[in-house]
Structure formats: C-alpha cells, structure tokens
Amino acid sequence: MKRLINKHPIAIRWFHWINFPLLAVMVWSGILIYWAYDPYQIKFFGTTWVKFFPQWFYDKYNINHRLSEGMAFHFAFMWLFAINGFLYVLYTIISGEWRYLLPDRHSWKEAWLVILHDLHIRRFAPAQLKYNAAQRIAYSAVIVMGLGSLLTGLAIYKPVQFNWLVLIFGGYRFARIIHFALTIGYCLFFVIHIVQVILAGWNNFRAMVTGFELKQKPDETLTSHERTE
C-alpha cells in the first residue's frame, strides 16, 4: 500500500536548485580572485600537506591571471546568491518549515545515533519527521555558513566602510581566511551531500525535484476499513 508524502514545498525546491549554480559561480570566481594572493596551506611538523592551490590546478582549470574577471563575476553574482539565500530563510520562517530544519534540544544526541546508523554500527535510526537530526544540524549550519560568507565577504570588500565588521572577524587578514575556509566548507558539504543523496536513492532525490516521496505503509498501520478496500 503506497502513500504519497509531500516532503519539499515548491519554493524550497526552487531555492535549492537556483542556489546550486549561483554557489558554483561564486566558488569559481572566488578562486580566480584567490589566485592573485594564494598563501594558504595546511602545515604539520614543518611539512606542507595541502597547498591551496598547486600550480597544476591553476593550469588545468585556467585560473591564471584572471583577477579582474573574477572580481567582476564575484561582485555581480554576490547579489543573486545573497537574495536567493535571504528569500529562502524568509520563506522557511513564514511557512513554518523552519520547524523541520532547525536542530531541537534532542538533535545533538540523536545526530550521533544517526551517524552510527549510517555507518551500519547501530541497527535503528531515531524516529524523524522531514529530516533526521544530522540533517537538521547540517542544513542549518550551511545557512549560518552562508551568512558568514556574506558578512566576511562584505568585510573584505569594503573594509573601511564596514570597519566594525572587520573588527568582529578579527581583522582584514583573518576575515579573508574565514571567507576562504567557509568556501572549503561548502566543497566538503557538497561532496558529503552528493554521497548521501546517492546512498539515499531515487525516491529521496526525486523529492527535491517533484516534492513528493512515496512510502510503503505496512498493512498493520492501516485502519480496518482501509484493509478491506
């Protein structure tokens, strides 16, 4: 006995799919800008483990000497990225969808149970509505990250006009580091997100396009008159 679950409202699906190319353009143009001054690396014990970015990366993706182009794209698409993000947050507030998105006081403990379940260590996942606890934390965190990108971006874009923002983020240099680190965060989010979507399967993916998920209802939960139909 199949049932149809209306999972994602149409507005959220639009925001989601519009955000994807916008964020992609922001990351790409951001790399064009970062190339012009690229000192960041991850070092342990005097050895560089990760360099952002190696020359082969710049060569392969045609990043070299495109600072002005990167700035032009970045400072145009920032508006679209910001507007889409603000409308999404506004929508979740007005529609009440935030109730399924924000972590509640149980989410922190439950998120561990979800992870243990995902890793096949624990047999049962905690009961959930639209999202499980780990999803609530991830999807809320990525919005906070988006806000962080906008604010650190504004701080390094207009550091004199918004000198108080620069102060909040620990100075111009540190604001640029946070801005960069958040971008790495999106890339990691993207990788995990894609893996999870593939693992979750077609029904779940389709819901982000059509809005609905199909659910097999076990017979015993049906009322007696439904069973006789």
Partner: peptide
Amino acid sequence: MKEQNKDDLQRFNEGEPYDKQKVNRR
C-alpha cells in the same frame, strides 16, 4: 521529536493516498 504535532505526523508519516496518474504527471 517529542513536540511533533498531528499535522506534522499526517504530512510526513501518513501522507495522502497514492494516485499513479497524479504521481506520473507531477
């Protein structure tokens, strides 16, 4: 999870009857 109300349960657990034509169209 304790605060979930009836509407939420209806939406995410009960859902609505499956209609093949409607599902295909959507």
